[in-house]
Write a protein that binds this DNA or RNA. Sequence first.
DNA 1: CGTCTCATTGACACGAATCAACCATTGTGG
DNA 2: CCACAATGGTTGATTCGTGTCAATGAGACG
Lengths: 257, 257
Amino acid sequence: MYLETIELPTQSAGEVDATSDLPGEGRCAHCSVRERAICAGLDDSGINALAAAGRTRRVAKGQVLAWQGEQASTVTTVRSGIVSLVATSSDGTEHIVGLVGAGGFVGQGSSSAMRFSLVALTDADLCLFPVQRFEVLTDRLPALQKGVVTKVAGDLERSRDWMVKLGRASAMERVAALMAQFADACPDDRLIPFPLTRGQMANFAGLTIETVSRQLTRLRDRGVIEIHRRTHFEVLDRRSLNSLADLSSDGGYATAN
Amino acid sequence: MYLETIELPTQSAGEVDATSDLPGEGRCAHCSVRERAICAGLDDSGINALAAAGRTRRVAKGQVLAWQGEQASTVTTVRSGIVSLVATSSDGTEHIVGLVGAGGFVGQGSSSAMRFSLVALTDADLCLFPVQRFEVLTDRLPALQKGVVTKVAGDLERSRDWMVKLGRASAMERVAALMAQFADACPDDRLIPFPLTRGQMANFAGLTIETVSRQLTRLRDRGVIEIHRRTHFEVLDRRSLNSLADLSSDGGYATAN
DNA sequence: CGTCTCATTGACACGAATCAACCATTGTGG
DNA sequence: CCACAATGGTTGATTCGTGTCAATGAGACG
């Protein structure tokens, strides 16, 4: 709802070499994000044209896919994992301004220079298209262009939703909203892995590590969530979590303890 | 840079009846935003098709053009004035999440329901297109679709830029950034009208009226700006304003007084 | 002149940042 | 296998910025 397109990584089952390219064609047929990526509306001939233009790539957690300020050489669809958009301010601090999960799309900028860096937050599978070839395709395939518009417009709405949180919400509300997001994105309801470290959550939520940590313990103490070994959590009281995520400068009457 | 597409209204010279429709055709030729709206890339036949599909409308300051939650019946290009996107939270509070000025475009959502209300902040001239007819046109005219993508992608970038401010910046930095924006958008360097009230600025910047007011007086006391009769201002020290708008939790070493 | 709206200014409270220890987990080398 | 450091997380004490509450001021309008 607030985040770009958070979805947990396919539990990176196994070895991931830093950058391995996969071959070209026909793979789209059994792609896991075939139905929700920009290619969703394409017919077979369109898909094949797109597949021919792009390539897949597997990147390791932490890897920088593109640097802010660089010329954008490719546009990207995320097949699995989470990629973050990072803004570097003039004083050198970094701020996560977007999270892109499976099915998400990045790269269509207003200018050719990247306004944000792209950093893999988890191991990730990507689908890359050189910008020039991609533009040729979007001109030829209205369905593809429409897919891009839909994605970008959706990102814009989510970005604006999150703006409201950043502008007005209390620390509790922000953290609760994040947890609710993570829970929504996770198929398993019982054991949800934190897709971001505390530092990354803090960064994205406009808070500090300490504050995020404190809010998490408050949520735990109130019986809203349970935290397992610091890396996973479980939602015990979804109703409370949702109301904490929504309004309230703290929870007051809503549910709370 | 941070805002959606702020540009000051054409100093609403004269009478504005709440809603006056203008006739249909040929008017695009001498439209003031012809070169920077979504129609920028269209040839004459495209422009004519677009003109035939849409109509212009003049709305008065304060008027609500669309309500959050409603079905989006039209998409809109702003010809002059400023339109705000307003998010209403579940507790009833409102938050301005975007400002759209001359040449800007709104309405392309991911779903058909409006996620935000549209409110005219000043008297404004609009160009309205029924969504269905507009979609037919975007399918037929790749250049139009491309114009939409460019606009939306630009808005997304600006929205993310502003997210950084909302998440991390001090009150001083936010207000300075707004002032810098207003100054950039205004042709006249000496006397710049505040396009938003203090309350609207506060709302958009995630602050309170009082804090905005205090930061403005601090800027004045430091000799960065001069305020005339509360409705206009003048930038005395552009360098200081820019550095205050950028980093710093207050200005400290940067320039300041 | 009174009223209404919007803006400014001040006193104070409170939430989150900051500074600072300390704890838990993981990985490394002897 | 255990000491060890390195990384990431939690918790506490304190500071500081901004929100809140409250009063006053300035234009605009009838």
